[in-house]
Amino acid sequence: MVAAGYAEVVDDPARADVAIVRRAAPYEPRGGGFEAFFHAGRLEWTAEEPAPVLDLTGSFGASDEALLDVLFGRSPATGTLPSSMAAVAASREDVPNDTADPLFPDGHGLRLG
Rank of each mutant, 00 (worst) to 15 (best):
F38E: 11
L68K: 05
A77W: 14
T57R: 13
A51Q: 12
L56G: 00
A3Y: 00
E65K: 10
V53D: 13
P50E: 09
A66T: 08
A77R: 11
V21E: 03
P52F: 04
F38W: 15
A19K: 02
G32P: 05
G79V: 07
V10H: 04
L43V: 14
N97G: 04
A3K: 00
F34V: 12
A19V: 06
A16N: 01
G5A: 15
V53G: 07
E28C: 07
A40P: 02
A16E: 00
Y27P: 10
D11S: 05
A86C: 09
R92P: 01
H39P: 06
T78C: 08
T57C: 08
A36P: 09
S84V: 07
L81A: 14
Y27C: 12
E93C: 10
L103H: 05
A36S: 15
T57V: 08
L56R: 05
A36M: 10
A40M: 11
A16G: 00
A25I: 13
E35N: 08
V18K: 01
G31H: 09
D17C: 00
S83I: 06
A24D: 14
E35W: 12
R23V: 14
A40K: 11
R74T: 09
P29I: 10
A36C: 10
V95T: 02
A4M: 04
S83K: 07
P52G: 05
V9M: 05
L81F: 13
F60M: 15
A7V: 05
P50K: 09
E49M: 07
F38L: 15
E93G: 12
Y27I: 09
E93T: 06
L67Q: 03
F72G: 02
T57P: 00
G31M: 03
S59P: 00
L67M: 08
A14N: 02
D98A: 01
E44C: 13
T78Q: 11
F38D: 09
A89L: 14
D12V: 10
H39R: 15
A24T: 12
E48H: 13
R92G: 03
D55M: 09
